[in-house]
Design a protein around this nucleic acid. Structure first.
Lengths: 113, 113
DNA sequence: CTGCATCCCTAAGGATACTG
DNA sequence: CAGTATCCTTAGGGATGCAG
């Protein structure tokens, strides 16, 4: 039983709203999808997420890091290398993303079934 | 293992993109949340989704109906009564929405754990 | 009550150039 | 390579009025 948010409850009292605030933007789920196959670098993500701008990718990654979903590892080399990996919390989210993918790939020929 | 979308694959070859195209807009997940507690009328939804405009609610409901996620039942009364309920396909999606809610309500004090 | 039609507005992203 | 800084565009929604 999920409760709707009470009118006087602010700042994501409702878990769905909180989740939405984290993964609700355009590219986030796709980033998680691509990270699902293992650690990736900034450039790799930019390539696999055909069409994303570096600005947006950077923003989304920062959000995910701040939320404790991914970890950013910087190698002090030149040229710089940066890798992104799921945290345990991210791993749990990943499972759900996989479920969404499964759901999305169901056969829909029999509408509504 | 989720594959990224191949550059030359169009129209949501990737399940996540397809799912995103269905539930990706601002209110959809919240509508599903509120429908999670059982059949609801248009007006009920508009009330529990504090802030949504009738235009948007109408659009999202139509999309969900077209995708076979919910069923719209119209009672030929006056004033009109309309009810929205999950289809079996919608029920499966509902389970995942519940999982997202669970994930969102986890304790995040220990960041990344 | 349900839900279109209109008009309007803002914030999320795109494109690009630049730096450590 | 991995971003940041700027500028600019657009489409998703908000508000409102009206209709069956």
């Amino acid at each position: 039983m999920i409760k709707s948010c009470e009118p006087n409850n602010e700042n994501y009292s409702c878990p769905i709203e909180k989740t939405l605030s984290i993964i609700g933007s355009k590219w986030t789920l796709l980033i998680l999808r691509d990270l699902s196959n293992g650690t990736k670098r900034f450039g790799q993500l930019q390539k696999s997420l055909k069409g994303i701008s570096p600005k947006t990718l950077s923003s989304r990654l920062q959000e995910l890091e701040k939320e404790g979903i991914i970890i950013k590892k910087v190698y002090p080399e030149v040229p710089p290398r940066v890798e992104y990996t799921f945290t345990p919390k991210g791993e749990r989210l990943r499972k759900i993303v996989l479920a969404l993918a499964d759901w999305g790939s169901e056969d829909h020929t029999a509408l509504g079934v």
